[in-house]
Design a protein around this nucleic acid. Sequence first.
DNA 1: CAATTCTTTACGGAATGCTAACGATGCTTC
DNA 2: GAAGCATCGTTAGCATTCCGTAAAGAATTG
Lengths: 235, 235
Amino acid sequence: MSRILVVEDDAAVRDVVEHALTREGMEVATTKDGEEALKRLNGPDLFDLVVLDVMLPGIDGISICQELRKGDSPSAEAPVIMLTARDDETSVVVGLEVGADDYISKPFRPRELVSRVRAHLRRQRLLSKAVPSEHKKLTFPGLEVDLFGRRVLAGGEEVELTAKEFDVLAFLATSPGRVYSREQIMRYLWDGEFYGEARAADVHIQHLRKKIEPDPQHPHYLLTVRGAGYKFANI
Amino acid sequence: MSRILVVEDDAAVRDVVEHALTREGMEVATTKDGEEALKRLNGPDLFDLVVLDVMLPGIDGISICQELRKGDSPSAEAPVIMLTARDDETSVVVGLEVGADDYISKPFRPRELVSRVRAHLRRQRLLSKAVPSEHKKLTFPGLEVDLFGRRVLAGGEEVELTAKEFDVLAFLATSPGRVYSREQIMRYLWDGEFYGEARAADVHIQHLRKKIEPDPQHPHYLLTVRGAGYKFANI
DNA sequence: CAATTCTTTACGGAATGCTAACGATGCTTC
DNA sequence: GAAGCATCGTTAGCATTCCGTAAAGAATTG
């Protein structure tokens, strides 16, 4: 499996990227902090690729890339994909000069990012073959979500979910406590391209509650945040 | 038993080598294709030694050797014996530089090849009974998949699968219970570079079901996960 | 060039997801 | 505490999507 480091201070963008890559079976580590990023890159872990926001508080992305390339950390040769603001051509040029391999300007569609990441990994021949990997599971009291097997155990019983239901649950449950708007949920379900009625998310939530909540009327996992959206409980 | 991978495009030479080594009690897998060779070397099987033609259509032997050595496949440390044309000294030099262990120039006598193979295996202490390597097989009730021999037994009967059919089965069966999208399946089949219609995966699955399922209408091994892809049953 | 293998395409039926509408609930203001 | 408004829950029907299958068209192989 490929390991990706995502460095991005905006939590929303970070989550989108994390989810998109995780869904492809990649192992994603995130940090919002340039200092922390350098620490991890210089640490013992090998990252196969780095997604790097240019604008960061503290150390900027350019400097991080520069440091990475001139050091001899395990990940010194890893491809770097820069995230830049729409019209920030200067950063693009400088970025490529200090050793970045690619850039994507915000806003971007998750699919595009994924396909670029894959392209770079392929060039490095690091794409996962049929590596018998373990199932990545999210475990909570009374609830277990198997992300790779797409199976859910609620109260010890296996529950049959539809594709969208599972995706909503996986989306929310990977970031317990974080509130997502209906739009974010629906955009995740449709991979960035949803132009319908966001309240369709409500229906998925209802169906999920009926299937996984001990008492659907008083949800324990899938909580409504009035005026904002939904969140998975912080357990 | 020692397992040898022979990469050679000339069918005549390939047969000679295969027979010579088989007669010595070794287990021989052959391929005429550089791409395929890399796929198998990066796959889950362990090879104890590689016999590698320098001149190949597509990827050449030097590149294969280089990739093998810098990757972390199970066979990354295996001895490599290069087959070169009589006067191709450049290849010999370059070959040894990129990590080949020996070379034999064509035409060669089978006995010579065998004795060199033996010498390298001995040096690796792989001829000793201490390390009896086995066939890597996936065994399920009523189904057996021999990854190394690329053979399949279903209900005790040997089943003839095409190359892609076998690859799909091997891919899914190495991670029972894990769901793979059509894209992931096709990308595996084409080593990361597939841009066609992902539903081709459906057809392979159908063919496989007809060949290995007791009741193809109600699959027991190859299960559909609606809205997501396919998985091998968790048995 | 014949045969085999693989991919593409199309269609029907079944499962799924979206919309829209209405009722229920929570929040705010008086 | 009640009225009014906004937001959420719930339902059912309809449109869409998805899968199995077959058949034909590429591509590959001998």
